[in-house]
Design a protein around this nucleic acid. Structure first.
Lengths: 345, 345
DNA sequence: CCCACCTCCTGAACCGGTTCAGCCCACGGC
DNA sequence: GCCGTGGGCTGAACCGGTTCAGGAGGTGGG
């Protein structure tokens, strides 16, 4: 609209137009003391008229300046990520919180832990982000130490054990797992298997421990945990092996919804009626669980809300405010058609 | 390792250590002429020893400097995105290409077209990205004009119609749709319905037109297109309505895999055997199609490869090299258990 | 022998912001 | 009337790179 200026207006243009110095413009635009209200008003008007927008790199370059971006590295094989709704939901939640505050999200998908560490290093060294969200906490995870020494402000999704004192948003998976197991026991199941995620993850260990403990409490005869890698393919393989067993389990608890869908498919292919002879519980309740038939009983978590919450925590952390460990709303067991009382055969 | 320096090393530190000027260091590090091979070698060694990494904002700030990031805005409701594998696969593919070249991906999820436009404007004005990937081309899409006038280097995933001359990676959906329809006709189907995506998208229109034309060619008696919004819920609703009809279709072609899974669920709930009385084809073959039972016949595309390709095109465009429209590898019909000959009832 | 030219390098400007020291001036108190 | 105070603003430094004009010194040709 202002045809005179080809390049984008800078604060120098504003300063010239207002007849003041760069410094005064900066004070005015940032709402800091140092200019009178009259002058501030005039400068703001001119800035608006010129269509001025702060230049990101320039802001970031100034001492103490922020980049206005946060990063998240997802270290899972691309093949698995595709159909796994969890991360997309998490990203949606984070975005929802960041949008409007002018902070961008940098997403990186890596294939191994080394690449993930390299990403953090690069982001810190090149000053690409102001902070990061750390997900999928592992047993003896050196990333907590890494972000601390870089240093790179970080909020952990998970913990609090293993978060190493970093601010974190954690869930009491154990409590929900108890609820799940007691529910299955009440339905008459005595032989259950947990198809868990990879052993390296902390939340896997926590859930597995809770599964075993709850099974003891509930008096289950058999309650094993087998580990898989969250992919549909391995969910299929593992389930096939489990159901081919002579003394096969009558209840399966999956650590994500994709494997649960795979398990349901295997039951169908083997002619095992669900839920009459086999009950299935999925962890993380995406739309998938409602779409398949029979629909899947699932542990529902508000992943989007968690994403938003973790983004808020990171924003505050970057701003220098104190941030502590927060417990997120607990998951909720949503019974559907894939679980039921064992029918005598 | 070098304990003397608390802050990150800058080129000034390197210059001091090497006894040369800032300029010489810059030439050496960027592989430009202006320094002797001996000096260059010395500077590079010192840089490596100090652990120097270029500062992103500083580089971007210099005239003609690049930010080292590209952006993608996905304008779909968060609820739908979660379980939709397409975008996650696309992001994985883009990442795979960008990783290693030191270019980051900024992802934004918006709820409407205005927010998407605002994102482009902000990214251009604040200099957050060097270019963008434009997806989900719409009928009369003003984004092509927008990126052109901002200006913001952009590559379109889709087109070439509607790409408005921008470099694009397009697919010949029509050809595959013909294949699908003739396949269904060969199986004996005469009454098919396409459950398409939202009408506003260009690829929806292209596929619908191809569906109608192929149906005419193949001599189908009835071939309607109904529009849905890609969500599982609407897939369920639409399918229920279609199958409740007195003269219900015997073949359904879905525009994405999530709706196809939903459709399969509805068929199960209504007791309509698949594929005996109903054939189902999904567009986009994610792992989901292989997991459900019966497994879904699908049009398979290498979405990851497309992502990588579009990232490569954008990288070249940003570098100032000429980039033209490219046709991606065509989708492929993968028959599975959800399609079959119509059995007389 | 002198000049032109090339190689290698320096010094300084520049990108667009932020911030700090310090100046000017009005005003209030004694 | 004089001094202290503080609000309002300026000028300059600074962040960490890139780039350009130009200088020093060596080399080759006429």
């Amino acid at each position: 609209m202002v045809g005179a200026l080809m390049r984008r207006p800078t604060i120098v243009d504003i300063a010239k137009a207002a007849g003041v110095s760069k410094g005064a413009v900066s004070y005015a635009l940032n709402g800091r003391p140092g200019v009178s209200d009259r002058t501030r008003e005039r400068i703001l008007t001119i800035a608006r008229d010129l269509g001025w927008v702060p230049n990101g790199p320039a802001r970031a370059l100034a001492p103490g300046g922020l980049v206005g971006a946060v990063g998240m590295v997802v270290d899972r094989p691309a093949s698995e990520l595709g159909a796994e709704p969890f991360f997309t939901r998490l990203v949606s939640g984070i975005e929802a919180e960041l949008t409007g505050s002018g902070v961008d999200l940098l997403l990186q998908v890596t294939a191994d832990v080394e690449s993930e560490a390299a990403a953090y290093r690069r982001w810190a060294a090149e000053r690409r982000v102001d902070g990061v969200v750390v997900v999928d906490l592992r047993e003896s995870d050196y990333r907590t130490e890494l972000v601390r020494e870089l240093p790179l402000p970080a909020v952990v999704l998970g913990g609090p054990e293993g978060a190493d004192g970093l601010p974190c948003l954690w869930t009491d998976d154990a409590a929900v797992m108890h609820e799940v197991v007691h529910y299955l026991a009440a339905l008459g199941h005595r032989n259950a298997v947990q198809v868990a995620g990879p052993e390296c993850f902390r939340h896997t260990g926590a859930r597995a421990a809770a599964f075993a403990e709850a099974a003891r409490e509930a008096g289950l005869k058999s309650a094993a945990t087998v580990h898989a890698d969250y992919t549909g393919d391995e969910g299929t393989r593992v389930t096939r092996r489990l159901l081919a067993h002579r003394d096969r389990p009558t209840a399966l608890v999956y650590d994500n919804d994709l494997m649960a869908v795979a398990g349901l498919g295997v039951a169908a292919e083997m002619g095992i009626p669900v839920p009459d002879e086999l009950s299935i519980v999925a962890w993380d309740d995406s739309v998938l669980c409602r779409l398949v038939r029979p629909s899947l009983t699932a542990v529902s978590r508000d992943v989007e809300a968690n994403g938003a919450q973790v983004a808020r925590m990171l924003t505050r952390l970057v701003a220098g405010e104190p941030v502590h460990a927060v417990e997120s709303t607990r998951g909720e067991l949503v019974p559907r058609d894939s679980t039921g009382p064992l029918t005598e055969s």
